[in-house]
Simulated scan of single mutants.
Amino acid sequence: MRPAPPAIVAVVAALLGGITALVLGAATGLTSGETRTVVVPGAAVTTELRPAAVPALGNRFDPAAIYAARAPGVVTLYADLGADGQSQGSGFVVDAAGTILTNAHVVTNVAAAAGQKVVGARRLYAEFKDRDRAPARIVGWDLFSDVAVVRVDPADHALAPVPLGDSASAVVGEPVAAIGSPFNEQSSLSVGVVSATDRTIESLTSSFSVVGAIQIDAPINRGNSGGPLFDARGRVIGINAQIRSTSGSAEGVGFAIPIDVARRALVQLERFGRVSYAYVGITTQDVTPGLARRFGFAAARGALVARVEPGTPAAKAGLRGGSRSETVNGLRVALGGDLIVRIGSVRIDGAGDVSRAVLELSPGQKVPFVVLRQGTRRETIEVTLAERPA
């Protein structure tokens, strides 16, 4: 069979997290007799969260034990988006105050906004494992990471917060468990392994990519969006967000937003009501040892600046983009631009490292970029970072 065109795969990937109001209208009581067919696509700050839970599970992977201990902390979210229809997704309680993490595309109209203002759900409900519901309110959302924070009143329902882990420690092959509500089937468990780490994936909610995503083969489907991805100790290492599929259902290629990214969004949304990101204004591509040998670069690895956007911090600082290109082994390589090998104290071995390094910085910071000009001459360029544009 011929593979499906990439455009088809991308569209299907964007469907995770919502199911049509044709199903939701009668099943959830969000509508009063009417149904609408709407598909919903799917300076670093540190703080101590307030989870009442601790990772009590052992290192042995026991899905039944994970489910028994953590499912009470996972909720199904029903969002009334007004004229944009309804959506259904998942979420999980992270503290005794009723704070819930989920995906931004579950609780906003971003899928239907089409360049217009993104607004949150008019009404939002969290349904717990015992099928009791509580009204929820939106604290805020971060479209860049596709993370949203909502809250329920602890007086409305007993809470079972789940502990947050460390997504940076995830390794390929380790077992994982996803709990959520695929196709509105509440509190469903699926298991698999980490297929890859540090994936850079297209965001469903902004024009910027999400870096550090965790790829999994645990089956996740529409409605799993916003649900937790647990490691073997029952700690959340990611928020299930996307699938890549040619059929619209799970095909073993799912992606979770790393919990380290979600934690950053949570902290800033609670403190400031918004999330800020540093911005450089460059497009880069990987340099490998083979390319370095081919073009005589003085470093075997790094990030080659392909383009510098006009008027950005990179342009103002004097970073240089490519002036010509060549094709090597089927790969188009931009040449003539700076080769970034270090940002501040962080070594840069590829384009993904640039994104990750900048993610840890703050707007307004002045940061030294160590580059090889023309691939050979070492220079340090001070770049004053701006805030990422919407």
Rank of each mutant, 00 (worst) to 15 (best):
A160H: 15
I259W: 01
V236G: 01
L359F: 13
A97Q: 12
V12M: 15
L319Y: 02
S247L: 12
P228L: 03
R294E: 15
P228F: 00
S247W: 08
I243V: 10
T200S: 12
Q116H: 12
A334W: 06
I8V: 15
D84A: 09
G42M: 07
S323E: 15
Q88V: 12
Q268S: 10
R301K: 12
I220Q: 00
A121I: 06
A43L: 14
P258Y: 03
G42C: 08
A53D: 09
T47P: 10
L339T: 08
L101Q: 02
E309K: 09
V328P: 09
A10V: 14
G248I: 11
P289L: 04
T99C: 05
G227I: 01
A13S: 15
T327H: 06
N184G: 08
G254H: 04
D260S: 10
G173I: 09
V211M: 11
V191I: 14
L164V: 13
L372C: 04
F297S: 05
V371L: 03
L372H: 00
L16D: 08
V287C: 06
A113P: 07
V194W: 00
L49H: 03
E326Q: 11
P258Q: 06
S276D: 14
P163G: 09
I237K: 00
N109P: 09
T246F: 12
S206M: 06
E382N: 11
V261F: 06
E360A: 13
V118R: 03
L57W: 02
V354A: 03
P5K: 13
T205N: 06
R137M: 10
D95P: 05
T46I: 11
R388M: 11
N329G: 15
V371P: 02
G302K: 01
I214M: 02
L361W: 01
P182H: 03
G290T: 13
G330V: 10
A69P: 11
S195I: 07
V253R: 03
E387H: 03
E127L: 08
A299V: 08
A13N: 10
S32I: 14
G321L: 07
A314M: 07
E387Y: 02
R293H: 08
P368V: 04
V211D: 13
E127V: 14
F272N: 13
P363E: 08
A53Y: 01
P6C: 10
V147T: 13
A104G: 07
V358L: 06
I381Y: 02
I66T: 05
A134H: 03
G98H: 00
L304H: 02
T288A: 05
S167R: 01
T31S: 15
